[in-house]
């Protein structure tokens, strides 16, 4: 579990110092404030620790990290990730499972990271997962080809890793109770299941007696099915960290709310979540969960003009532009209905 994140001069971020992270963590902010960027920064660090000493892999931590940053952010040189508004180097520090992982480099860095320190010298066993806003099932062959054969930029490592994870076969046998419950609820949400046909190497959506190609399947179903698949093949385990980018995309608000109940259930069994969102429903539902279970749900509000704001849904709804937008719409309605916005004629 990630307990603390500190970064400086990383991409558009000048300084983020996010402490006391919870099982579920929310990142909100307008477009272009760096929500996805921030999650990718955490993801690359975790993936580096996961790949380190895995099997026969004897790559060094700095080399794995450099590779991961390169394929996740896809810059021409790593130095492009350094915020040029400030003269200092990029600095990244993350504490997970009580151990610090930190590195820094300057704007002249091409592909080699010199300064990296990790308190853990072991391979991180549990997988982290990044679920991007766009679904990957219908594109997974193209995604894998772009990397494995063409070695081309386009789909970053969040897509590639997910496409590879989805290909792992399902596993039989008992799973953790909360995982099994979550799968049941996910399947009832999509009213069926999505599976990879090993003969055609294509994904299909099975609903009762009907079979649909993935192209015929609704986007929301694909999104939920991805999650189900990662539970079936046990890619997600109890200490996984899951990054959900724009969870709300393609999902009806009622599905978002149900999905968040499932996420809460999984978080209770140890899985940690980072959710980036623009959705009022997500903030409100997480607020209600925090209140109901007296649980800390840290919120990081990013802004184009102001410093980041660190809040906790346990202490109330955060003051932010998403809620402001909803209130502004309602205020406009009130203005209209009370005649301040028209001439008072019917």
């Amino acid at each position: 579990m990630i307990e603390r994140l500190y970064l400086k001069n990383f991409g558009m971020h000048h300084q983020i110092d996010w402490n006391n992270l919870g099982k579920i963590n929310l990142i909100i902010g307008e477009n272009g404030t760096g929500k996805t960027f921030l999650m990718k920064a955490m993801y690359t660090a975790l993936k580096t620790m996961e790949q380190y000493k895995k099997g026969q892999d004897n790559q060094s931590l700095p080399d794995i990290l450099a590779d991961k940053l390169y394929w996740t952010f896809q810059p021409d040189s790593l130095g492009e990730l350094v915020n040029k508004n400030y003269k200092e180097k990029l600095h990244f520090s993350m504490q997970s499972d009580g151990k610090i992982f930190e590195y820094s480099f300057g704007s002249d860095t091409v592909r080699k990271i010199i300064k990296l320190e990790s308190e853990s010298q072991e391979n991180r066993v549990d997988n982290s997962v990044f679920i991007p806003a766009k679904e990957v099932l219908s594109l997974y062959q193209i995604i894998l080809k772009s990397r494995d054969q063409d070695r081309a930029f386009g789909f970053d490592d969040t897509y590639v890793d997910l496409a590879r994870a989805l290909m792992l076969p399902g596993q039989q046998g008992n799973n953790y109770r909360r995982f099994a419950e979550s799968r049941e609820r996910l399947r009832s949400m999509v009213n069926g299941r999505v599976e990879l046909d090993s003969k055609t190497n294509r994904w299909y959506y099975y609903q009762g007696r009907n079979t649909y190609t993935i192209g015929e399947t609704a986007e929301g179903i694909k999104k939920i099915a991805i999650f189900d698949r990662l539970l079936v093949n046990r890619y997600i385990s109890r200490n996984s960290v899951i990054f959900l980018d724009e969870l709300e995309s393609s999902l009806h608000p009622s599905a978002v709310v149900e999905f968040l109940d499932i996420i809460y259930n999984l978080a209770e069994s140890g899985v940690q979540f980072f959710i980036a969102s623009h959705s009022y429903f997500i903030i409100k539902k997480l607020f209600l969960l925090a209140q109901k279970y007296h649980e800390s749900i840290p919120v990081l509000s990013l802004s184009l003009t102001n410093e980041p704001v660190y809040e906790d849904l346990k202490n109330g709804m955060p003051d932010n532009s998403i809620i402001d937008a909803a209130i502004a719409l309602y205020s406009a309605e009130v203005e209209m209905l009370t005649g301040d916005d028209d001439d008072g004629d019917s």
Partner: peptide, 23 residues
Amino acid sequence: KSPKIRFMLLVKTIAEDNCLHLS
């Protein structure tokens, strides 16, 4: 004279976004 009718609930202490939900 064909008035516009408005039903109005004023709540002393309520979060602004809850006004929206109640409405």
